[in-house]
Design a protein around this nucleic acid. Sequence first.
DNA 1: ATGGTAGTTGCTTCACGAAAGAAGTAATGT
DNA 2: ACATTACTTCTTTCGTGAAGCAACTACCAT
Lengths: 148, 148
Amino acid sequence: MTTRPLSPDEDALVRALPRLMYALPRAIDADMVREQQLPLIEWTALMRLSEAPRRRMRMGELATACELSLSGMTRIANVLERQGLIERVRSDEDARGWNAVITDAGLARLEQAWPTNLASVRRHLLDHLDGIDVARLARAIGNVALTD
Amino acid sequence: MTTRPLSPDEDALVRALPRLMYALPRAIDADMVREQQLPLIEWTALMRLSEAPRRRMRMGELATACELSLSGMTRIANVLERQGLIERVRSDEDARGWNAVITDAGLARLEQAWPTNLASVRRHLLDHLDGIDVARLARAIGNVALTD
DNA sequence: ATGGTAGTTGCTTCACGAAAGAAGTAATGT
DNA sequence: ACATTACTTCTTTCGTGAAGCAACTACCAT
């Protein structure tokens, strides 16, 4: 295992990391719950579904997209389904599989909550990234934590 | 609340965010547990203590530094104390307060686990940040999620 | 081809542990 | 004395991994 020491810059980043990993999701989630009664994870699931072809995704696919375990995804899907924001329909090409499909109510709810999410991400994150190449950063983050 | 739409770059960043907020901490923690039997949060606590004046911090201070609730910090401190990695001593200027003090064993454990943490952060994060101004990013992240 | 069976996959249910928040306790300050 | 502060204990919620179940695939024997 490589143990070349960190440069001072990298070291500073490592020390700042808990902010990003622990504080940021809590802060955004708190905004979403307070203003929209829609936790961040549920918002994320709706967002992924809304962008999927035919507004649907297999459960496993959705779990991955939400960075959630499959069992965790089942739980969230139950919550969303009980609220009528998604439906579950059997996959037509594999009878073991279920598709989560976002409903019209789900799309409406997503629309309604969108500005809160946007403002929250701005306030907690984007507003602090002056001078950072955001496009490059976004691309970089896409590759983060790929292997486990 | 401001709802100016996101630029495409910002939008890409927002969509990549779950990686950073959910997958990254899980990945690093998994490495720490697998190779060192020392969860990331415990490592973080030891690291903060090791750098504090007189190797000690008040519980509340430490909780903040670890981005943890006070009750959560109590729990972690109990675990570390049972392992002899920290001690609790009453604060001499406020009898309500406790100082968590890292022991020699704690320092040794931190040293021992350091390379794993370093390698993990490199592998999951730093290695993917080509072209990013890391110094600037570190400074920026320091300001993330300040308000709740 | 046809069917049997072994193994894999997709999802849910169950059992557990981690973290937050509320309520409680003890010491301070005014 | 009363309100506030520092921490712990208690309660509830959230998310994981393991176990369970149903359905699909692959392989072989006939």
